[in-house]
Amino acid sequence: MSAFVQSATRRPVLMSARIWLALLIFAGFAALPLIAALTDDPFLMLIGTRILAYAIAAMALDLILGYGAMVSFGHAAYLGFGAYAVAILNSYGVTDLLVHILFAVLLSAVFAAITGAISLRTRGVYFIMITLAFGQMAYFFFVSLSAYGGDDGTPLQSRSTLFGRDALESDLVMFYVALALLIALFAVATRIVGSRFGRVLIGTRENPVRMEAIGLSPFRYQLTAFVISGCMTSVAGVILANQAEFVSPAFMSWHRSGELIVMVVLGGIGNLTGAIGGAVVALLLEDWLAMLTEHWRLLFGVFLILMVLYSPHGITGALERLKGARK
């Protein structure tokens, strides 16, 4: 109990510091097009959009992983639902971005509600493996969906339209739309975490038996959080499909789910700002290592193991430890 009370009283200060940090990150993103213009590097916008999409996904995963202690190893599936929502609706001539997002969210909500209800009957290692298996199930479904290219995927005819205009064809507009979505979803996630719902979720993480004892059903809260998280992740999938103008099952491979977890842990779990930061750092590190050598995965793997063994709380943990040492 004491840990819970402590974190609840400590939270307002920490919370606002984290929100300021998040605003700083958003400002940095907003200035990115300026840097792209100055360095005359048009690819920077595409890289930026990709990072924004993964930031949304990592934040969504942190909502259940960090605040609800549900280690979902199948979250890449929702990236895929978002991406295929764009491809499928496009092929039927429905191109509006909002409709795409709505369809993606609907699809994800149904899948998350069904698989979540089954997965949440279990705990710990079982939960990890079951979410992984359900993620693979979705993956294989799209691999055998030959109408949309099967294993190879399919290119998009065009990007989504915004209120009937093809504004997203500009990488710059695409980037800012992605940024706006990230900020909006960050606001939603922050509200959720701070609400009564969020407190019950955190309480369930700390001690589900106790939550039941005070008359709350952990299952319902956990399942709702699971569905919300899946829906948010699918928005990232919609952005990714538009960024790449290409959709394939590779978005949903279990490696991708692993990378999402890496981002969350890198940023420090249970910390929405950290998840965004973790996505930025992980993707930049990948790109940087890939420039150094074609065998970058080897280095990334070594980095992962060292991080787990020596800095279990990610960047935020390392920073907070530094701050503590100075005091």
């Binding site: 977890i261 842990v265 995965r297 070594v302 992962l304």
Partner: peptide, 13 residues
């Protein structure tokens, strides 16, 4: 969670 991450790193290596 730590075990997942470290062994995921091992898979990559």
């Amino acid at each position: 969670l730590d075990q997942v991450l470290a062994t995921f790193g091992l898979v990559m290596i």
